[in-house]
Design a protein around this nucleic acid. Structure first.
Length: 882
RNA sequence: GGGGACGUGGCGGAACGGUAGACGCAGCGGACUUAAAAUCCGCUUUGGGCGACCAAGUGUGGGUUCGAUUCCCACCGUCCCUACCA
């Protein structure tokens, strides 16, 4: 018996698929379309097991749908812009483009080893001019539509590297590379108006019924819609002077464009403090008004008062990352200014600057109601402000109710509240809003937590923002005939900062509008912009316009999108937003890009450490024992090792397993099979050597069954039992794939092989041989999505027509997929006491008699009276007796 | 602080409200072999019994039900996301 050797077999079939060009997806077909997409990879240079799992899962779906008669689009590309290329440039003196394209070449070869059913003719990289040039085109359309704008925003500035850092690049307040203390700087940046679509993006979630609830919920929370009241507190008349003085001080001090400041702070010119609240029902519980340290009024006061300036500086310190440390201490300062309660002209409330108020949510100012908000309560305790309960919990006594340890945020009846007394919380909210609106002081408002999307990056390796700055004309879009704005190649990374800023010629140009001297925008786009439309570009990657409408209309939406849950919010929300924006621009017809979403788990591995704390690679580890007695030692030194946690494979923990080495040892099919077999797809899978060995054994055993089957099978009625098992298998595997339960499907395939080996080919009857022939033909096609190379070899072995990849998915006979006679357990009072055999559709009465007369059962009925017999047809019998 | 998911043998995990532990790993026994590897066959939740069997058992405590791993409530634990969002 010849051993199945994946090293010989697998490349052969990959060549065969490539020669036949089977995975090319035409943009028109009689077949129904199906678009399968896995989140495209960043070209880091090497694939890891996570890629193997992600792309193998997509491949299962793609191959399955192909076999089911769909015209399947399954493309691959590269999310190729971004920081690592620039880091490599700085560290190794290579060019980001060269580094990136080299990595792409290497990873493409590795991915091709996986035998994925990808239409490589559609491959694209976001750093191709052909791609980002088209991105510039639609970007300018959005600019024209008013969805793109510039505003000043605070960024993390690394003074040593002279660069802007993303939040995650700031570690303990320092730049992750330079270690320098990060400064907050205000820069004029480009923004996309995603907030225009906040409500639409929220509502659209309801239609995404093939998305995980978890992801929809995360997006819902991220958008963070709330309903409430926005209104203005009038500053008490005796404080108008102080208010105005502060304002003037700010303007005297400000070098900033006063026109701008006036516009931005239009409502600030009136002596008011505007607040937003979701709890207008608690307005009579107010004891102070709080403003954010960044609030214009706070900044204005700081210009006059160094103590306030110091407090503001104090509040700005401390990294946002250490939110939990900050959460402890409330910090505030009484400005001395007072405002008038909207419902009582004689009631004055002090205005405090408070560190827990955020400038970029609502209006940056609140009214504090300590009795019914925990933060306000903490603040009130610290600064001895009144605590005035206005919501009475059910069954509480209004005379004695007090807010003690915790603020009361539950439901109840309003009291101590004048015209709202006796109302429920919801009625009181409506009443308060109505009253404030009638007074002309404010209105009911909807507020979102979602912020506009800042897309400026002060980086070289990204898509240039196609805008020219002219002193006379302002920011002018690059005219269409001058697109694309191509990144210059001749840049150096020997100095910190954005090389585009230092470039001798690229930056300098003429204004398309007036023809005068002008400068190019040197910011590039956030790479999330690149990944917000690639799925649309795949439908026709060579189109002369960004998106070929006909191709996009044919293929979109993506029927099944697959990727990591870490993209649940940003990428998936941005892509939904851009799709909507492009739809409104008439470039797309769908609002939702991804009809189905699946978030798969990671590949993890146990970790091992030596006594000195050094991580040890799995290949050096020898394991023994089981359970609590498991032990590890170093293969070479014999040193005892500590077995650590099971964690995501990472270089730092040295718990990675190189896919290529696994392919070499066990074959690609075994690797694919294992990463899908051992855990449900949405959960993490733990890589184990034993596990992949098991998958390799399965591959061998499958081959043995095919090899031992004789070429010529005598005509005969197939064996019934094996036939039934075969048809049950088709049903089970089909349902497993459709339900994303690959692990269960694979388990059924393993199980079937165990059945099949009991029907040996050697010395078999014609009936068995005939049933085996059917079983093998089915089996070869059922394993094809999981182990496509093996499937081809097996298909060929049994003389299958053409390639297995082109063979139709087997269908099952429902009558054969069920047993005609079933074994039904018989319970007495819920405990299994025996079993009866009966035809599947035997009448209840007959089953009841069988059960009651069963010997094993009657033993347990001795001395008892049968009260009730429940017969679940084809399932179970339960006898209730006492 | 808020939100979510999960909790089943030595391990990964199966079980439309209907025989808990499929399948795989690890382990044990056996066959083949001079021997080993590979392969094949068998056993493998726990306790009791030589045994057919009996009892217990899906984090803990309640509830619904003829019947609960599955549904409901409370608690404990683990993991993930999010974070002063007014």
């Amino acid at each position: 018996m010849a051993r199945y050797n994946p090293k010989d077999v697998e490349p052969k079939w990959r060549d065969a698929w490539a020669r036949a060009d089977v995975f090319r997806a035409p943009n028109a077909s009689d077949k129904p379309k199906y678009y399968v997409l896995e989140m495209f990879p960043y070209p880091s240079g090497r694939i890891h097991m996570g890629h193997v799992r992600n792309y193998a899962m997509g491949d299962v779906v793609a191959r399955f749908k192909r076999a089911r008669g769909f015209n399947v689009l399954h493309p691959m590309g590269w999310d190729a812009f971004g920081m690592p290329a620039e880091n490599a440039a700085m560290e190794r003196g290579v060019h980001p483009a060269g580094w990136t394209y080299d990595n792409i070449a290497a990873m493409r070869e590795q991915l091709k080893l996986l035998g994925l059913s990808i239409d490589w003719s559609r491959e694209l990289a976001t750093c191709d001019v052909a791609y980002y040039g088209q991105q510039q085109r639609w970007f300018l359309k959005l600019l024209e539509r008013g969805l793109v704008y510039r505003k000043e925003a605070t960024v993390n500035w690394d003074p040593v590297d002279m660069t802007v850092l993303a939040n995650e690049q700031v570690i303990d307040g320092r730049g992750w590379r330079s270690g320098a203390v990060v400064e907050k700087r205000k820069l004029t940046q480009w923004f996309l108006r995603i907030t225009d679509y906040a409500d639409d993006l929220l509502e659209g979630l309801e239609s995404l019924d093939r998305w995980p609830d978890k992801v929809r919920l995360m997006q819902e929370n991220w958008i963070g819609k709330s309903r409430g009241l926005r209104f203005a507190f009038q500053v008490a008349e005796e404080h108008h002077g102080a208010y105005r003085a502060a304002l003037e001080a700010l303007w005297d001090k400000g070098a900033e464009d006063p026109a701008n400041a006036a516009e931005d702070n239009a409502d600030f010119i009136d002596p008011v403090v505007e607040v937003y609240t979701t709890r207008p029902d608690t307005l009579f519980g107010a004891s102070f008004v709080g403003i954010a340290p960044d609030h214009p009024l706070a900044e204005a006061l700081a210009a006059k008062d160094p103590k306030i300036a110091a407090l503001i500086a104090e509040c700005r310190k401390g990294g946002t990352s250490e939110a939990d440390i900050e959460a402890a201490e409330k910090l505030g300062f009484n400005t001395g200014i007072e405002v008038i309660h909207p419902f009582d002209p004689n009631w004055k409330l002090p205005v405090w600057i408070a560190n827990f108020i955020l400038m970029d949510y609502g209006t940056g100012a609140i009214f504090g109601c300590p009795a019914h908000d925990q933060r306000d309560l903490d603040f009130a305790r610290k600064y001895a402000l009144p605590v005035r309960p206005v919501v009475l919990p059910p069954n509480a006594d209004p005379a004695s109710f007090e807010v003690a340890g915790e603020a009361y945020v539950g439901p109840g009846t309003i009291f101590n509240s004048d015209f709202m007394d006796g109302m429920g919380v919801e009625d009181a909210k409506a009443a308060a809003i109505a009253r404030v609106e009638a007074q002309g002081q404010g209105e009911g408002a909807t507020v979102y937590r979602l912020r506009d999307w800042g897309v400026s990056r002060q980086r070289y390796w990204g898509c240039p923002i196609p805008v020219i700055h002219c002193e006379t004309c302002g920011a002018v879009p690059v005219p269409d005939d001058q697109l694309p704005v191509v990144l210059p190649d001749d840049v150096s990374f020997d100095k910190p900062g954005n090389p585009l800023l230092r470039h001798s010629t690229w930056r300098h140009t003429t204004c398309p509008s007036c023809g005068g001297k002008a400068e190019r925008e040197t910011d590039t786009l956030d790479t999330f912009v690149d990944s917000s439309w690639y799925f649309a570009r795949f439908t026709d990657p060579e189109a002369a316009e960004p998106i070929d409408k006909a191709a996009a209309d044919y293929w979109l939406p993506v029927d099944q999108y697959i990727g990591g849950v870490e993209h649940a919010v940003l990428h998936l929300l941005y892509a939904r937003f851009i799709t909507r924006a492009l739809k409104d621009e008439g470039m797309l017809s769908v609002a939702e890009p991804f009809a189905g979403l699946f978030t798969q788990g990671m590949v993890t591995h146990e970790t091992y450490r030596a006594a000195d704390g050094a991580w040890v690679e799995p290949s050096y580890v020898e394991l023994s024992g089981e359970g609590r007695k498991r032990a590890a030692k170093h293969r070479q030194t014999g040193e005892a090792l500590h077995i650590g946690d099971i964690e995501k494979m990472s270089k730092s923990r040295k718990n990675v397993v190189a896919p290529e080495e696994i392919f070499e040892t066990y074959g690609v099919d075994a690797a694919r099979l294992f990463v899908m077999s051992d855990s449900p797809p949405e959960r993490d899978v733990q890589w184990t050597t034993g596990g992949v060995e098991g998958a390799g054994r399965f591959v061998q055993r499958v081959w043995n069954e095919f090899e031992t089957q004789p070429k010529d099978v005598p005509a005969a009625e197939p064996d019934g039992e094996l036939r039934r098992a075969t048809h049950k298998l088709i049903k089970a595997v089909t349902e497993s794939i459709e339900g994303f339960r690959f692990n269960s499907g694979i388990a059924r395939l393993y199980e079937f092989l165990n059945i099949l080996k009991d029907f040996k080919a050697e010395g078999a009857t014609p009936a068995v041989l005939a049933a085996r022939a059917e079983a093998l033909s089915v089996f070869a096609r059922l394993i094809a999505p999981f182990t496509p190379h093996l499937a081809e070899e097996c298909w060929k072995q049994i003389g299958g027509e053409g390639l297995a990849v082109d063979a139709p998915w087997p269908s099952f006979d429902p009558a054969l997929a069920e047993d005609a006679e079933v074994v039904m357990p018989v319970q007495v009072n819920g405990k299994r006491r025996g079993e009866v055999r009966a035809p599947k559709d035997a009448p209840e009465d007959a089953v009841r008699e069988l059960a009651l007369s069963n010997g094993d059962v009657s033993v347990h009925l001795g001395g008892l009276t049968v009260r009730k017999v429940i017969v679940v047809p084809g399932r179970i019998v339960n006898i209730v007796a006492n």
